[in-house]
Nucleic acid binder design. Sequence first.
DNA 1: CTGAAAGCGCTAACAA
DNA 2: TTGTTAGCGCTTTCAG
Lengths: 343, 343
Amino acid sequence: MKSVNLKQLAQELSLSVSTVSRALNDRYDISQATKDRVRALANQLDYEPNPYASSLRQNKSKTIGVIIPEVANHFFSLAINGIEEVARSNGYHVLIYLTHEEYQREVSMVRLLASGRVDGVLVSVANNADSDFSHLDLLGERNIPVVFFDRVCEGVAAPKVTTDDYDSGYRATRHLLDQGSRVIAHLTIAESLSISQRRMQGYLAALAASGIAFDPELLLRSQNDKVQDVKAIQDLLAQRPDIDGIFATVESMAMSSYEACRNLGRDIPADVKIISFSNLEIAALLAPALTTITQPAYNIGREAARILFQSIIKNRPLSVAQSQELKSELVIRASTASRSAPG
Amino acid sequence: MKSVNLKQLAQELSLSVSTVSRALNDRYDISQATKDRVRALANQLDYEPNPYASSLRQNKSKTIGVIIPEVANHFFSLAINGIEEVARSNGYHVLIYLTHEEYQREVSMVRLLASGRVDGVLVSVANNADSDFSHLDLLGERNIPVVFFDRVCEGVAAPKVTTDDYDSGYRATRHLLDQGSRVIAHLTIAESLSISQRRMQGYLAALAASGIAFDPELLLRSQNDKVQDVKAIQDLLAQRPDIDGIFATVESMAMSSYEACRNLGRDIPADVKIISFSNLEIAALLAPALTTITQPAYNIGREAARILFQSIIKNRPLSVAQSQELKSELVIRASTASRSAPG
DNA sequence: CTGAAAGCGCTAACAA
DNA sequence: TTGTTAGCGCTTTCAG
């Protein structure tokens, strides 16, 4: 059974197509009686308007696109929750695209979305982007509003929803120092990402404030591969047995650090204290419980979507000035305990 | 700058719209010279075809819909990974809908998709569905192929991708018994879900095989709320201090059990052994490491999507016979250790 | 090999 | 208050 269309409804009711259309859209110029008749039949026949016909006609899709590196990561899945919630309450649909941190995929996904398929785009960029973000300009040229969240692109003139990454980096490092760490490794993803840079600047500032010189040997970048990361961290810890603190700017590196420490027989927190950016709900159930900088992931998604919809609904261009910075939370647990480990 | 359309390309090239269309679609009846000319200009102007115009004309959307309870759950996010991968490689787009376990949302989402917005749907049903799945029949009536995964609906004639839930339930319970548990609580989500039923039947069969009578007091259903679940589990453990094993059919209940045990000062595994269905990567890093039944979540998503695309691409109806059952893996860790806890 | 023309289902002027 | 008509951008007969 093919689905019903307006023409069939019109025929059945001996009305014109446009009357039926307007009745269903609850326009003021249609009598209540007609509206009732039309809606009754539409319900009875399970009429659903063809969304592509309306999109074509009205030149809007009631759809937004979300481009993220991956979904199997608590930060992004919480953010999607927030995004989906806002989209749904606005009657919008959500197309999802996963770059798997591959720049080329990001480029082609953006191109796909520049076709009018979506009315707006939310992006958190891939970590090995070439720092060439010209693909994102295409959306601007086509007047498709874009909002960045978390992994933003400084070079593009669009609102950005981020967290207080510099402060968080500072506080995380400060916390390790307060707990007695002196040689603190910094584990990160692509240094090209502005959030990585800010977290690192916070780290550097906290070190400087304590009169500790920065040692570039203590820097380690994720390879986007669990096994390699564990190996790299082990190598680092073996080469530099004086390391007594680890600041991971991404959750996966903290988990890899746990494994590396276990493999090497290093005790957390006695030998090495660990703090990490993380949205793991069960950080408290780890052995030992992980001290985290927790980003308000759900709210980040929600705010980014809200800003986007302000533009979509009021048809107003977005400006960088609408950017928001939310606060992350430092949650202290056993992995950074100074003496005996509680919890 | 508005985006370019076929007409503008045609004008610029002094060709007809249809020629340009056919050139871009690489049809055999267009000369290579023309194709080259057309493609050069299209590239230069960043031409992207309006997807809604093609969808309307061809009556296909190059889009699939995915309806799941939530995304902040490792099982579902891995499944989405698999789905997205298959969709992308087929040139398809993925619309995502989260029910948050609410039946009414599921109903309205299915209705939305019955409009021709998608060429196929993948569903994992909400846990508090009324066992009334008539909303899903609408898709069948509209000839929109559906494949269920994991949380399937037995009543609907569509392929289903599941795991060996009965066996897994049996093995999980058997494992607890082997490790010395005798009074095993069974924590689950909605009993109306067929996967819950199968897991439970496995549990019952394993008990029976050991000559242990089933005690309905040991059954606990999740309230979809962390705080309430922890409370309920604590109450259960307090009321039945003889409980020495917990079989959680969902990850969240295992995490709640960890908290409940910690709150009550019960040692895992000395006092209570815990096993759970779970896709947590870091199960091994918990305190104690969690013994799991791990479902091949990525493959479930991939297989479900593959089956769906078989139907979409060949335009062939799906049959229940295309259902697949994949195997889950029992990963033994410290939470079910019989004496002193390793790892 | 290319062009003209119809039409997918819907909405929005404009008429009546 | 309702009907007529044109057209969104594309694909696809059918002619040439």
